[in-house]
C-alpha cells in the first residue's frame, strides 16, 4: 500500500464509493465487498491500531442497518418493494411495561440489511484504511495534485495537525470537569438533558478551538499563506502500477454506469435460497 501514490489511492477510493453506491444488486455488492476486503488486507494494519476507527464505524453501521433498516424499516424505503414475506409479524412485548412492539420484519428487508452491510461495509473498509496508512504530510500535496485549490488542500493537512491537539484539549477539559464531580457515565433523562450534560465538555473545548483558530490564521498569514503559487515539498510520483490502478478505477466507474444505466443491472433482488430459508 505504501508504494501506491496517494493520489491514485484517493482516485480508486472515490471511484469505489461512486460505483458501489450505484448498486443494490447483491451479486455486484458481493464483488465490491470482496474487492474492498482485498484492498483492506493490502494495508496490513493491525487491529490494535484501527480498533477506535472501527468502533466509530461499527456504531454508524449499527444505527443504519440494525436500527434504521431492520427495526424501523426506514432505510429500505424506495428500494424494497412494499409488502413482502413477513418474517416476524407479532413483534414482541416489552416486559414490565407491557408495550407491544409490532416488528413487521420481512425476508426482503432482512436481505436488504445484508446488502446494506456489504455496501456500507465495503465503503468503510476502503476509507477507514486511509488515516492509518497515509502519511499525514501527504494530504496537502495529494489534494493539490487532485486539482483542488491550495486553501482546500492545506485545510486537509491542517486538520491532521490539530486532531491530536483537540484530543488533548478534550482530555484536559474532561479532567477539569471530573475534578468538579462531573461524571460522564451518569447521564440521565431525555435527549435534551443528555445534550445539556455534555455542555461542560463541549463549551470549553469549542471556545478554546475558536480562540486558537485566530492564532493559527495569524501564523499562516505571517508566513505568507495564499500570497503566491504554493510549492508542495512532499514528493509525489506516479509509477506504472499507479497508472494501472487509475485505469482500473476508471473502468470500474464506467462499467458501473453502463451496468446500471444501460443494462439495468443495479436493482435489488432476493435470491431464492435465502427466501427458502424462511418461507
Amino acid at each position: 500500500m505504501d508504494r501506491i501514490d496517494p493520489r491514485a489511492r484517493w482516485i480508486f477510493s472515490f471511484a469505489f464509493l461512486l460505483s458501489a453506491t450505484m448498486f443494490w444488486n447483491p451479486a455486484f455488492l458481493l464483488l465490491f465487498f470482496l474487492l474492498a476486503v482485498t484492498w483492506y488486507l493490502l494495508g496490513r494494519t493491525r487491529w490494535k491500531e484501527t480498533r477506535r476507527g472501527w468502533l466509530l464505524v461499527g456504531f454508524m453501521l449499527f444505527t443504519m442497518i440494525v436500527i434504521n433498516t431492520i427495526i424501523t424499516g426506514g432505510g429500505a424505503g424506495g428500494v424494497v418493494p412494499p409488502g413482502g414475506h413477513v418474517l416476524w409479524p407479532a413483534g414482541f412485548t416489552i416486559p414490565l411495561v407491557n408495550w407491544q412492539i409490532y416488528f413487521g420484519l420481512t425476508v426482503e428487508r432482512l436481505w436488504f440489511a445484508i446488502c446494506q452491510l456489504m455496501r456500507l461495509g465495503g465503503v468503510s473498509l476502503i476509507f477507514v484504511l486511509i488515516p492509518y496508512t497515509m502519511d499525514p504530510r501527504a494530504y496537502g500535496a495529494t489534494f493539490r495534485g487532485l486539482a483542488m485549490p491550495d486553501s482546500v488542500a492545506y485545510t486537509m493537512e491542517l486538520s491532521f495537525r490539530f486532531i491530536p491537539t483537540l484530543g488533548r484539549d478534550l482530555a484536559v477539559t474532561l479532567d477539569a470537569q471530573k475534578a468538579r464531580g462531573y461524571e460522564l457515565e451518569k447521564f440521565k433523562g431525555g435527549i435534551f438533558q443528555k445534550i445539556a450534560r455534555i455542555a461542560p465538555l463541549l463549551v470549553p473545548v469549542t471556545m478554546n478551538a475558536i480562540i486558537a483558530s485566530e492564532d493559527v490564521a495569524n501564523a499562516m498569514d505571517l508566513r505568507c499563506f495564499g500570497q503566491a503559487k504554493r510549492t508542495w515539498i512532499y514528493p509525489l510520483r506516479y509509477h506504472w502500477w499507479d497508472h494501472a490502478l487509475i485505469a482500473f478505477s476508471a473502468l470500474m466507474l464506467l462499467g458501473s454506469v453502463v451496468a446500471v444505466h444501460i443494462f439495468n443491472a443495479g436493482g435489488f433482488w432476493v435470491p431464492d435460497w435465502f427466501m427458502r430459508l424462511f418461507v
Binding site: 499525514p136 493537512e157 491542517l158 495537525r161
Partner: peptide
Amino acid sequence: ERQILGTY
C-alpha cells in the same frame, strides 16, 4: 504550539 502548522 498554535504557531506550528506542520505535522512534522
